[in-house]
């Protein structure tokens, strides 16, 4: 009886979930179509759109750029964000809450505003379309996610362990590296994952400040979508979805105990 009562609810939920995943399924199936035209389901299947992605030097360069930038961003932002989270967790001074809010500003300020301002500043100091400029921007945009994730890890961690470690004869830094860090590693890894995927996916900032030699994949995709609808986008999208998901699943396999984030 109970199940029957719930039937309408589950019907509605199923419809909403279908709405959520449908566009993604469409893109994946489209990527294997043989047709230039967007017929669905495709009449003939082929890998031609994967060929036109993987054999195009411009697409490949944008892809390589994005991955390199994402890796550099992660390398920069994980230590910076972890240090900040540790500082925030340990510091009892009253100004800390304000400082934390400052650190969250990359998610509070709408990205279009940051992109516009950054474009003007970078144009002035010559950082437009440079790797340095992009990495700094991507790192800052993803800093809050690393910070929040590591802070959550520290909050559920028993700081008495660090005290004990120190009483046993190691410095605070050593106690952090040997005792705290191994135990909050899942949170740090989650933060790193957010940062990596976030940098790979940073579109609006890229549209404004990437370009030339340092064109990124999202910014090139955006331009291509604005011009005409090229099914190559479908194959690229499928690759991106696979990468994101491989990473997310890899993470959840590595830390089966609890899902952080």
């Amino acid at each position: 009886m109970k199940k029957l009562q719930n039937l309408p609810l589950y019907g509605v939920v199923f419809a909403i979930l279908f709405f959520l995943v449908f566009p993604i399924i469409v893109v994946v199936i489209m990527s294997f179509s043989d047709s230039r035209f967007l017929t669905f389901p495709p009449k003939v299947f082929s890998l031609r759109w994967y060929e036109s992605y993987f054999l195009d030097p411009a697409w490949m360069r944008a892809t390589r750029n994005s991955f390199v930038l994402a890796i550099l961003t992660t390398i920069l932002v994980v230590p910076v964000g972890t240090a900040a989270a540790y500082g925030a967790h340990m510091c009892k001074m009253a100004i800390m809450r304000h400082m934390q809010l400052l650190l969250l500003s990359p998610v509070i300020v709408p990205v279009i505003i940051i992109a516009a301002g950054l474009y003007m500043v970078y144009a002035q100091v010559g950082l437009l379309a440079t790797k340095l400029g992009l990495v700094l921007a991507f790192a800052t945009m993803n800093l809050p996610y690393v910070f929040i994730s590591v802070l959550a890890g520290l909050r559920s961690y028993d700081m008495a362990q660090e005290d004990v470690a120190r009483s046993l004869g190691v410095s605070r830094l050593a106690a952090f590296m040997k005792v705290t860090l191994p135990q909050i590693r899942p949170s740090v890894m989650t933060g790193a994952l957010f940062a990596f995927i976030g940098a790979l996916d940073e579109t609006v900032i890229s549209i404004f400040i990437a370009g030339g030699e340092n064109q990124t994949l999202p910014s090139r995709m955006f331009m291509s979508l604005n011009d005409e609808i090229d099914p190559t986008i479908a194959s690229i999208s499928t690759v991106l979805i696979s990468v994101s998901f491989a990473l997310v699943i890899l993470m959840s396999l590595r830390s089966p105990k609890k899902a952080n984030g």
């Binding site: 008495a160 005290d163 004990v164 120190r166 009483s167 004869g169 605070r172």
Partner: peptide, 12 residues
């Protein structure tokens, strides 16, 4: 002295 230089055994 910081704890690491006090030579104390602590049981929490």
């Amino acid at each position: 002295l910081p704890p690491q230089k006090r030579e104390i055994g602590v049981v929490f």
